[in-house]
Simulated scan of single mutants.
Amino acid sequence: MQHSQPIPVITIDGPTASGKGTVAHRVALQLRFHYLDSGALYRLTALSALRHKVSLTDEHALSKLAEKLQCRFEGDQIWLSQENVTAAIRAEEVGNTASRIAVLPMLRHALVGLQHSFRTAPGLVADGRDMGTVIFPSASLKVFLTASVEARAGRRYKQLIDKGIPANMDDLLKDLRERDARDSSRAVAPLKPAEGAHILDTSELTADQAVDQVLKWYAAVRKQV
């Protein structure tokens, strides 16, 4: 009797600006898998909260906002209902707000079902902070990207300057350290490598090198099936 194989999932977790979004997106393109930027879901919730002037301490109201999100990913574009919010959700205020509300248990629970809905054939690459530990614990391959805070701040600085957004390196370093502390110490789904995850330090790697390594790990996993 044959059993259908579960839809494969590759999880790529890591701290802010570790390169996980770029790597996950490119891996998904190479494999022709679907892509989930889970951090974008928190940013979308944060953007909605800021626009609707919802208190960031009102866990119930924030959870309701999250449950009603109508979003989709099209390539590297992110849509909220009928609006392209790709640039809007990358604003520093939205990122900081997302980091603050991501510690709320009710909000995280409200987004679980939405995240699971992205797991469709032929496969999914999901990036975030708890993809391998909480959302997809039975993933085919789990990767945890890391990089020095200096390397990450440098990347974020370049991203902002390239977009014409003013940036200060000292402020970015302070912000990243604060986000790391919040993400790692929160009571629910703290940032940490999943059990069995491959650790990849991207401090000295190009995006292409990181993508190649993840694809090699996945090819090895497929051989074992």
Rank of each mutant, 00 (worst) to 15 (best):
G128T: 04
L205P: 04
V149Y: 09
P6R: 11
P8N: 03
A110W: 02
W217P: 05
S185P: 07
D76F: 14
G164R: 13
D58P: 08
R26A: 08
G164F: 05
D180Y: 08
L141M: 06
R100E: 14
M106D: 11
G21E: 00
D180K: 10
T133C: 04
A28P: 03
G128R: 08
V188N: 04
H109Q: 15
V188Y: 10
D170S: 05
G132D: 10
I12G: 03
D201C: 03
Y157H: 12
A194C: 09
V23C: 04
L31F: 02
P193L: 12
G95K: 14
A210H: 01
A181G: 11
L31D: 07
I165S: 02
I78M: 09
T97C: 12
S55Y: 04
P105A: 12
R156F: 11
D201S: 04
D37A: 02
G128F: 01
D212A: 07
I161E: 13
Y35D: 01
D183P: 10
L172T: 00
R129H: 06
R182M: 09
C71T: 05
V112F: 07
S184G: 08
H25A: 10
F144D: 05
D127Q: 04
Q159F: 04
R179C: 06
M169A: 14
I135K: 04
L44E: 07
A102V: 00
V134S: 12
D180E: 13
P6M: 14
P6T: 13
E195R: 08
A46L: 03
L200V: 14
S38C: 07
T97W: 11
S63C: 09
A220I: 15
V125Q: 06
P8Q: 02
A207T: 15
T133P: 12
Q5G: 07
L47G: 08
V221P: 00
L205N: 03
A151W: 02
G123C: 07
F136G: 14
A66I: 14
L111A: 02
A207S: 07
L172K: 02
N168S: 08
G14F: 03
E67I: 11
K174T: 12
P15T: 14
A147N: 06
D170L: 04
A49P: 05
R26I: 01
G95H: 07
A98G: 02
K223P: 01
A91R: 01
Q77T: 15
I78T: 11
L111Q: 03
V149W: 09
V221I: 13
S117R: 15
R51A: 11
T97M: 06
T133I: 13
R108D: 10
P122A: 03
G128S: 09
R156A: 05
S4I: 15
A181N: 15
S203R: 06
L107Y: 13
D208I: 15
T97D: 01
K53T: 15
Q213F: 00
I165E: 11
P190T: 10
E150V: 12
L191V: 13
G128P: 09
T202F: 02
R43G: 02
P166N: 13
A189W: 12
